[in-house]
Design a protein around this nucleic acid. Structure first.
Lengths: 232, 232
DNA sequence: TGCAGGTTGATTATCGATAACAAGCAAATT
DNA sequence: AATTTGCTTGTTATCGATAATCAACCTGCA
């Protein structure tokens, strides 16, 4: 009996370690594939297929898909299945405008709670970005970039708005990555955050607002062509 | 044999109809209670308790809670449980600003696809609002009001933005209802939509923008006092 | 008294099976 | 030839049971 217990403990540890929370892994991987454009927009995602692929049950997949649906990365129709969200420039433009308004209009509020610890946290995220850039990990860079902006916004203490910002960030990244191929200077993208940190450290609210506005509005240029699906 | 088939049909209809989709019912009822303030902000929601109350399984409750989480009406922490979302004026102010920007900035785009059928649909929603107002059904009125604005925005064909607008609408309604007691003129709230319909019928984009802007910015006045939780 | 370590209670996470459902297809009847 | 009827297939929705997890408490010891 004792040995059986010990064996069970060992097995549990061995099995449980790899993932942590299973649906979390599935969620993260699918998010990566969608944002990176590996999963083509409008294509179907079958729950049972994914369950087999990730070696888990349908319920776990369902949970991951619901999380994705929450951010708008997939569309779930009642009994018609799940599909990868479309990616049109019209949506992206509105989303960027919203992001601009959310991030910039809350700076005064943000400043009231921002302390030195916030600066340290953000500096950590910046280093994460630099590492990802060095490894040519475009998705990792984008993920850390989202973490940076979300951490900054957290200081404004607007819990009902944060999920909306998260959603905007994800879609802006998706559009940016799908629009321009891999021909981007990742290092430069990371360094673009330095002025934000500087303004924050100086506790200069107007400058922070201006720097942020510039940072966000120059992420994607809608100049040349668009990866728009419908030509209507 | 014929009678047995007929009976089976009748039974199926009788049993299936009441609920339709079970998680849908749970979702709708919980949404009502939260928006109406019947469920107090920050209070805990236990999955198994709800499962017993609605006489369904835990998974069904979980699905409903996830939908609620999607709109930000509840907060789900990994292993700490689910709680009703807070309701502070700071969030509400930002949400109203976002709503304003989403609805008003897409009118040009909207006009390009709007036809006579859209006017008819919206007119139907207006009548729904009038009926709810006559019945003193404040939640019904709010629900039809959301449907009105969402139907209008649908014409802009920005599927990635629609869920964000839905979220803003729900929270604005919640804040509005929780702020002012029941002392509101429901009939007047319904009639406030007539100018929007008029401008749409006239296909006058600038006027529609102006009317909408006024409509939205006068929904809640942050003048006197605030039902703010923290006094920080 | 103070604390290290285990135990319990509450809650969520996962699973596999079954039910419900919508759409497409094919055959049969008119 | 056209319409309808019924079957088949692909997919999601729901369920009840079990496992994993975390926080708080409680016990034995110094």
């Amino acid at each position: 009996m004792v040995s059986e217990t010990a064996h069970r403990q060992a097995a549990r540890t061995a099995v449980t370690r790899p993932s942590g929370r299973r649906s979390e892994t599935v969620y993260g991987e699918l998010q990566r594939e969608i944002v990176l454009g590996l999963a083509v927009p409008e294509s179907a995602l079958i729950e049972l297929d994914l369950a087999e692929r990730f070696d888990c049950s349908q319920g776990t997949i369902r949970e991951a898909l619901m999380r994705l649906n929450e951010e708008g990365l997939v569309t779930r129709l009642p009994r018609r299945g799940t599909s990868v969200a479309p990616c049109h420039s019209a949506d992206a433009q509105v989303l960027i405008a919203l992001r601009l308004s959310i991030e910039c209009d809350s700076i005064d509020r943000l400043m009231r709670w921002a302390g030195a610890d916030l600066y340290d946290i953000l500096h950590g995220k910046l280093n994460d970005m630099r590492n990802a850039a060095r490894d040519a990990d475009e998705y990792g860079l984008a993920a850390h970039d989202r973490a940076f902006h979300l951490a900054l916004f957290e200081a404004a203490d607007l819990p009902l708005v944060t999920p909306i910002l998260r959603r905007c960030l994800v879609h802006v990244h998706r559009f940016k990555i799908m629009k321009s191929g891999q021909l981007r200077d990742l290092e430069e993208t990371a360094e673009r955050h330095v002025p934000i940190l500087d303004a924050l450290r100086a506790r200069d609210a107007p400058r922070l607002a201006e720097v942020l506005r510039h940072h966000i509005s120059t992420i994607v240029d809608f100049g040349p062509d668009l990866t728009d699906g419908n030509t209507a």
